[in-house]
Amino acid sequence: MATKASRAAARMMIAPSVILLLAWMIVPLSLTIYFSFLRYNLITPTGNPFVGWENYYWFVTDPSFQAAMLNTLMLVGGVLLITVAGGIMFALLLDRPMFGQGIIRIMVIAPFFVMPTVSALVWKNMFMNPVNGMFGQIATSLGFQPIDFMGQIPLLSIILIVSWMWLPFATLILFTAMQSLDQEQLEAAEMDGAGSFSRFVFIVLPHLARAITVVILIQTIFHLSIFAEILVTTNGGPGTASTNLTYLIYVSSLLQFDVGLGSAGGVIAIILANIVAIFLMRMIGKNLDA
């Protein structure tokens, strides 16, 4: 039983976390919203007058915004497609009886622990470089024209790199979810004559549905913020071919020093992320028996 005294103590113990997180959320957030209504450039001092929705107008009507939104969508969608499909495949595969399962699982999961800048640079140079990269060397030795990944298909290249980094995450979570699948149910279905395909569609997939949703939501939130992988590979280019929303905001605010414009972009990014977050929060909330 919680007494009045322990309640008070509990409140004292929670207070530092709440105050810090509140400050971390409220202060920068309100500043972002405030800046987004000012004409505020760090190089050309303008006295920071209030300009209403002007920054939003310029940010949204800029052609690079539409490109960035489309790229963001394709980046998130592409990575999700590869990682969820691949993750289900790996989870099913690893769930089968085999020798040395522990070692194989470690090899599959390892890329998740590689820092983004290393993954991106290693793929860009050691594999995707048309002259010295491994793919280019193999293509040349077989008599094909090597692909200039970062020049010809920059966005797809980044999708592939990010997928390599996140396939382990999907695998790990779906594999964990597989562990709680009732084997007897599967066997019963098999005895009733269900083939392996219908067993997968009617038993395994519904069982994994929740985990798949969680994977999709969490990855979406992370992938909306992809930044380092773009910065070290293509710098958003050629042109805006691989610029996503996060990178566009970075360019506006830290490269063009346009605080107002960058902040307007920031507010848009926050709204976008929140739409996904609401669904994720609901899933997590259901599971929380506090």
């Binding site: 959320m25 500043l31 972002t32 970075y250 972009g265 926050i270 929140n274 996904v276 997590i284």
Partner: peptide, 19 residues
């Protein structure tokens, strides 16, 4: 409180980059 704490994690970093 727990859910609210989690929601702070959903804030995209680029949204608060400038401030």
């Amino acid at each position: 409180v727990l859910m609210w704490m989690l929601s702070t994690k959903m804030l995209p970093p680029v949204g608060v980059l400038v401030p």
